[in-house]
């Protein structure tokens, strides 16, 4: 028995965008390998997520639905993932390279003594193996990697693959009893992220750097992000200065993002910042200093004070977008 599996992440009863992307990439991979595609769903009240997986191209769905799985805990989800992968006879498992996806792919690799490739940005099939391209050395190089033998476990960078499209498919999922008795961890709280779009999922990111000058300096940057329905990013310097929380930081010790549009406002573009955003499709730099390194990476540049440029750009977008 063999087959390609996708680990599906869900949050508040909905499939995560990164899992829709994983389904798209895995469907193509399964077709190229001549194998079937199975979605693996773990959680509580996830019947709708299973239905969505069928609609997005899965041939079958295997999962566990249990009250003890309401919140993600590695010790609850990990053993189940291994069990479900084995019951379904999967020999390729694809997941999103999120916090949960990295946890779960590593858990599975340790259990099955298997090869593990993290954060792939492209996949192709060569014979009966998957070749995964991934950025390495802080995004300065690419590597084509392959697991020559046995189970292949691969996680995918957010937004590197197009999400699967609706096929109108349906089916009935195979639900497996979850044996989640003895777990030593207890989730005692969850503080949901306040408003706004997740940086790694965002199509548009507007980021502020040292040039914003202080916490209030983010106001025009945030306003432009809001007008565009995008996420608010920040350089390390502004986070270290305490002007904005860490979860906005883009760059080497923050998040790696690849939006369609990245607008860098008052960001000089140190190599550490570039490591986190260089795979963005279109980069716009707005900076007073025409010599700033960010202009070497940008597709479009405006030299000027961000407090003049950003509000003008926002006003123009408001006019066009109504």
């Amino acid at each position: 028995m063999s087959g390609v599996g996708v680990y599906i992440e869900n949050y508040e009863g909905k499939m995560m965008t990164v899992s829709q992307e994983a389904l798209g990439a895995a469907r193509q991979t399964a077709n190229d390998l001549g194998k079937s595609l199975t979605a693996v769903v773990i959680g509580q009240n996830v019947a709708d997520v299973a239905a969505a997986a069928f609609d997005l191209g899965a041939d079958s769905v295997i999962g566990s639905d249990h009250a003890a799985l309401a919140e993600y805990r590695a010790e609850a989800f990990g053993p189940l993932l291994t069990q479900l992968v084995q019951e379904a006879g999967l020999d390729v498992l694809i997941a999103g390279a999120t916090t949960q996806g990295r946890d779960m792919t590593a858990w599975l690799a340790a259990d099955l003594n298997a090869g593990l490739i993290a954060d792939a940005t492209a996949l192709k099939v060569d014979g009966d193996r998957v070749v995964a391209t991934r950025p390495v050395y802080a995004g300065k190089l690419l590597s084509d990697t392959v697991i020559p033998e046995g189970m292949q476990i691969i996680s995918l960078r957010s937004r590197a693959f197009a999400p699967a499209e609706s096929t109108g498919g349906s089916g009935s999922a195979q639900w497996v009893d979850a044996n989640v008795g003895d777990i030593s961890t207890e989730v005692t709280g969850f503080k949901a992220k306040e408003g706004g779009v997740s940086l790694t999922d965002a199509k548009i990111i507007v980021s502020g750097g040292r040039g914003v000058g202080g916490p209030e300096g983010f106001d025009p940057v945030r306003a432009l992000a809001d007008t565009l329905g995008g996420a608010l990013g920040a350089s390390r310097a502004t986070v270290d200065a305490g002007w904005i929380p860490y979860d906005h930081q883009v760059g080497q010790t923050g998040k790696t993002v690849s939006p369609d549009l990245y607008i860098a406002c008052g960001i000089s573009g140190a190599i550490q910042h570039q490591a986190g955003m260089r795979t963005s499709k279109i980069i716009v730099a707005i900076n007073k200093d025409s010599e700033a390194p960010i202009f070497g990476l940008a597709h479009y540049g405006v030299v000027g004070d961000l407090f003049d440029v950003v509000p003008a750009v926002e006003a123009e977008f408001k006019k066009r977008l109504g």
């Binding site: 190089l141 084509d144 990697t145 697991i147 479009y300 540049g301």
Partner: peptide
């Protein structure tokens, strides 16, 4: 190693240079 780095290479150079507005 369970994973082979078959090929390691530099990023393809970005086409064109920045267009200043």
């Amino acid at each position: 190693p369970r994973v082979n780095w078959q090929k390691i290479y530099s990023l393809p150079a970005r086409e064109g240079s920045v267009e200043m507005i």
